[in-house]
């Protein structure tokens, strides 16, 4: 474990916590009297969260952590896997099933057909992988899928008029975690002999590059102290 990977995991954990906080805010809002301005904004405008991206991430974790009960790495590793699995599936459940949270989900805007991402990633994993075994192919599939899983969310943000802070933070943290992982891979390449994982590195690089324009607008909105807005 190195500082870059730990920072990356913590950033990833933060992104999940921000999303759970946002869902909690929406839930708690419904109980209050209506005139509360925050509630009004939350319930009237869409939450800006893409269910499609959340479903893709649940699939990413399900296919990446198949070895959670067979290969024990460390307590930290197992706990983090359980957190990511539990949170991603519960977020999907909240947006799909929870009587209040589902109201803030705008399915008319979140129209990205994520099936078009799943199939090519699966085919690519069958062709390009380190070992042609069930677990290895699914693990490789999870890397390719994670690289593109943010696309429905980024497209939804372009369509969302006013991106609220928690959603912007969520996407930023999600992009930042993989950028930190790239530093981790560079560090491990120079410190551990034979540490070469091209598939992981290229997928992670593509994933981070997909956030490039978001990062640009995110930092610009911070610098100019204006609302985050992505050009359509």
């Amino acid at each position: 474990m190195n500082i870059f990977r730990l920072a990356g995991d913590m950033t990833h954990l933060m992104s999940v916590l921000v999303l759970l906080l946002k869902i909690h805010t929406i839930k708690s809002c419904a109980g209050k009297s209506y005139p509360c301005s925050l509630c009004f904004i939350l319930l009237e405008s869409s939450s800006g969260i893409s269910l499609k991206t959340q479903e893709l991430y649940a699939l990413v974790f399900a296919t990446r952590y198949l070895d959670i009960f067979t290969d024990f790495i460390s307590v930290y590793n197992t706990i983090m896997k359980l957190i990511f699995l539990g949170s991603s599936f519960s977020i999907v459940w909240y947006i799909r099933r929870h009587k209040i949270v589902r109201r803030s989900y705008d399915k008319d805007q979140d129209t990205f057909r994520h099936f078009f991402l799943v199939l090519p990633c699966l085919l690519l994993a069958l062709i390009i992988n380190e070992k042609f075994t069930f677990k290895e192919v699914l693990w490789t599939f999870s890397l390719y899928l994670e690289a593109v899983a943010i696309l429905p969310q980024l497209i939804l943000l372009q369509r969302t008029r006013n991106i609220d802070n928690l959603t912007g933070q969520y996407v930023f943290l999600l992009g930042a975690y993989r950028a930190l992982y790239i530093l981790n891979w560079i560090y491990r390449y120079f410190t551990e002999p034979h540490y070469v994982h091209w598939i992981t590195w290229i997928s992670g690089l593509v994933q981070t590059l997909l956030y490039a324009d978001f990062f640009y607008y995110y930092f610009s909105s911070l610098k100019n102290n204006v609302k985050l807005k992505l050009p359509a």
């Binding site: 990977r5 995991d9 290969d71 790495i73 590793n77 896997k81 990511f84 981790n184 034979h194 992981t200």
Partner: peptide, 10 residues
């Protein structure tokens, strides 16, 4: 020798 590279990253 290809060590059975255990996936130690999340």
């Amino acid at each position: 020798s290809a060590t059975t590279d255990v996936k130690d990253e999340l």
